[in-house]
Design a protein around this nucleic acid. Structure first.
Lengths: 356, 356
DNA sequence: GTGAAAGCGCTAACAT
DNA sequence: ATGTTAGCGCTTTCAC
């Protein structure tokens, strides 16, 4: 009764203004220890005696105490948060990457701040500054393929030694890691598949190849022709920006320019959807009159009629592995350099027919 | 030589440790003012003389200074960050909501921490605790419809007075705001549309209606029948969990139980995709033999053949408005209570036929 | 095994 | 109009 609980007094003094959310001092006060002992329970539990530890854990639970990660960040310079910048969350290609990122990060107690840039330069700048101000530990970036991105990424992220992993699209000469599909092999395998089915006149619906991606896919296509002793003829290749409408236009171009075409390789599923549209309107039967293979395996590909045969990019895995590389290098306090490519996987459905 | 090398190493280590990111004091020193003046330039610029302000802004730019939002949060108890919890980013229904959220938040300088729960209870708990520890100012939640969610949301978020806005799905008796589709009206309008086309025997592919959503849609369907003096017969309603396969099964059930069925209302697009699959396999022509309308307007709906007529939920707007309500109440320091419902919009495509 | 003191970068409150 | 002081809740460092 006469004993004065000094610890309580000390802690109460330190608490001063009573904040409504439980903090370390509340727990320490109730456990009659210093706040440092509470801190150790959460960060270096081995340094605390079993008895004290158990008491503190119980009290923490009773008071519903959770450490304030913002305060922790102040001291440690680590927020356990990463940024994820992507061009367009509506495009069904990206959500699977997001899921892979989310899965890995949740498991490792990292938060993910997501920003959708719409491929607009201003949004990219806002996004990067926002993420820097929030002191993210690292960044995942699915770049837009615009040229001015590189400078701003260097200025705001790379030059400040923030680790970055690019996903899907590459930016040359930038100090970071990179995870993508093996695009050469994807197109090579797709073309080989058509050739094995007996196709010799294969049209290609391509995209503007400022990016390495399309460049490599085109190389894969050519290499497959070469290996199979088939001639390369660039009249069979039509290049438009990615959209269903442009896929439609490209199909018309290919078929009128080359009326012996028996198959089309579309560089992405969206362009393939345009092929379907053209074929429906022009009474071309898929796969009877025209075989079509594509690269991506977006969600809708299995739903359309006939289901689209496509080279599935491992989108989930790309997100997962990119997160792994990033968080690894955050923990090791190094800048990541790894370059990883994943093979696309043939999803054999019903849009290709053997003509042997 | 050895001595020099040894010393260089020590210096490099020291420098590395010393190398830090520009802060307020760096700017203040260079400008020959106190750090408070710098702070005012960024927070209350009117309180600083024009001359000083300009000098500080110039120096800030020169030194590439950006305020540290983590440190700011320590004092202000505001992180300018919100949480976004959703069940499944792969489901094409959700990314459009995310885009709406992202757009509003970017404009208002809020960061969004996203978590995908997969409808798994444990993930939901991890997500909420993670967001609480990071001191989010508010939360957007697209709940899973699981019953145990309510308690955990109350424990971790609501009881700590963190503002929350639910999107799409409602949880009864919880102190928060709510933005959703007017589900009664969506089904009512869809049914009316079919009836106007001459349909009298309308099957319904429903979902388990633990949630208010399906309950209200069913009420809308019934009300439309009533208003049009058509009988209600529950044999025409089949209820399964949401999946393409179950949509397939349900279609079979409806058509064999009621061979006079001329139209089907699917409670969501995924179930409608199952109808398409069934019809393709069983040589039922859409819309010639069977009309189909649905609710959602997911991305793939326009791609399938024939394009699906569906009541489009305003997903982007839901996300945008929910963010607006949340950030509004954060700024006013109140808990949001608003309940908003948005009308679904008829997307008339080619899956319904007049039989008048 | 545990505690005291210092301070991360910022802002609120008060002082000049 | 500008400066001084005192923390926000935590971890690092050093002391015992």
């Amino acid at each position: 009764m006469f004993l004065i609980n000094f610890r309580s007094i000390i802690n109460l003094v330190k608490m001063k203004k009573k904040s409504k959310i439980t903090n370390m001092y509340d727990v320490a006060n109730k456990a009659n220890v210093s706040h440092m002992t509470v801190s150790r329970v959460f960060n270096y539990p081995k340094l605390v005696s079993k008895k004290t530890k158990e008491k503190i854990i119980k009290i923490s639970n009773d008071l519903n105490y959770k450490p304030n990660l913002i305060a922790k960040s102040m001291r440690t310079n680590k927020t356990n948060t990463i940024g994820l910048v992507l061009p367009n969350i509506i495009n069904p290609f990206f959500p699977e990457i997001v899921k892979g990122v989310d899965d890995y990060c949740r498991k490792h107690h990292y938060g993910v701040i997501i920003v959708n840039t719409e491929d607009i330069y201003k949004n990219q700048v806002i996004a990067l500054e926002m993420l820097f101000e929030r002191k993210i530990d690292g960044m995942l970036n699915i770049p837009s393929g615009r040229n001015d991105d590189k400078k701003i990424i260097n200025d705001i992220i790379i030059n400040r030694k923030i680790p970055m992993v690019l996903i899907d699209r590459y930016i040359s000469d930038i100090n970071c890691s990179y995870v993508s599909t093996n695009n050469f092999k994807a197109a090579y395998d797709a073309t080989n598949y058509l050739i094995k089915l007996g196709h010799k006149k294969i049209g290609v619906i391509s995209l503007p190849h400022k990016s390495h991606i399309i460049h490599n896919r085109l190389l894969g296509y050519k290499q497959s022709l070469k290996i199979n002793n088939l001639p390369y003829n660039k009249n069979y290749i039509k290049e438009y920006k990615e959209s269903i409408k442009n896929g439609y236009t490209a199909t018309g171009k290919i078929l009128t320019d080359n009326n012996d075409t028996t198959a089309i390789l579309a560089m992405c599923d969206f362009m393939a959807f345009g092929v379907y549209k053209y074929c429906k309107e022009n009474k071309v039967n898929i796969p009877h009159d025209l075989s079509i293979i594509s690269i991506d395996n977006v969600f809708a590909s299995a739903l359309i009629n006939p289901p689209l045969t496509t080279m599935a990019q491992q989108k989930y895995k790309m997100g997962y592995i990119a997160s792994e590389i990033l968080i690894d290098s955050i923990k090791k306090n190094t800048l990541p350099k790894k370059q990883i490519t994943l093979d696309a996987v043939l999803m054999e459905r019903e849009s290709c027919k053997s003509i042997c």
